[in-house]
Simulated scan of single mutants.
Amino acid sequence: MAFDLLNCIAFVTSSTSKNVTDDFNRRLEMHGSTRIQWIALYFLYVAEVPISQKQLAQQMNIQAPSAARLVDRMERDGLVDRVENPEDKRMKFIRLTEAGKKVAVDLMPVGQYFSDLLLRDIPEHEIEIFLKVLNQLNQNIKE
Rank of each mutant, 00 (worst) to 15 (best):
A64V: 09
I122S: 00
A67Q: 04
G111R: 00
L28S: 02
D88Y: 10
N7I: 05
N135R: 05
L56T: 01
Q55I: 04
R95D: 07
I39Q: 14
I51E: 01
R120Y: 14
L41P: 04
I127M: 04
K101R: 12
T21L: 15
F93E: 09
M91G: 06
D77R: 06
R69P: 04
E98Y: 09
L119A: 07
L131E: 09
A2C: 09
Q58K: 14
D72E: 12
R76M: 10
R90L: 01
L56A: 00
M60Q: 01
I51F: 01
P65H: 10
D22E: 14
L70I: 03
T97S: 06
L6N: 13
E29A: 08
N25K: 00
Q59P: 05
R76W: 06
R69A: 10
I51R: 02
N19D: 11
V103P: 03
R69H: 11
N140I: 03
Q139L: 13
K18T: 12
L28V: 06
R82H: 05
S52L: 07
E29Y: 04
P65V: 10
K132M: 14
D116W: 02
T13R: 11
H125A: 14
V12T: 14
D4C: 11
K101T: 10
S52M: 09
N138A: 09
D72Y: 13
F43C: 14
M1D: 08
H125R: 13
A47N: 00
Q63I: 07
Q139H: 14
V103N: 05
N138M: 08
F11C: 08
M91T: 15
K18H: 12
A10N: 13
L28R: 01
D4L: 06
M108I: 12
V20G: 01
V110P: 08
S115N: 13
E124N: 11
S33Q: 11
R35W: 04
F93H: 09
S17R: 13
L41I: 11
I39V: 15
A40G: 13
K89N: 07
K54Y: 03
E143L: 11
R27K: 07
P86D: 00
N25T: 03
T97E: 06
Q55H: 08
L5F: 08
S115H: 12
N61Q: 12
L56G: 00
V110E: 11
R35C: 03
E29F: 08
N140W: 03
L79M: 07
F93S: 13
L137V: 02
D77H: 05
R73I: 03
L79W: 07
F43Y: 15
F114L: 06
K89Q: 08
D4Y: 12
S33W: 10
K18F: 15
K92Q: 12
M30F: 14
F93K: 15
T97L: 02
F93N: 14
M60R: 03
Q53A: 02
P109W: 01
R90Y: 02
A64E: 10
F130C: 00
V80S: 00
S33K: 10
A10F: 11
V20N: 01
V71A: 00
Q59L: 14
D72N: 11
I94N: 04
D4N: 15
R120N: 13
A10V: 10
E98P: 15
T13Q: 12
E29C: 05
I39A: 15
W38A: 14
L96N: 00
H31C: 05
E29I: 10
A104K: 08
F11N: 09
K92S: 05
L70S: 04
I36K: 12
P109A: 07
N19P: 02
V83Y: 02
E84Y: 10
D23K: 08
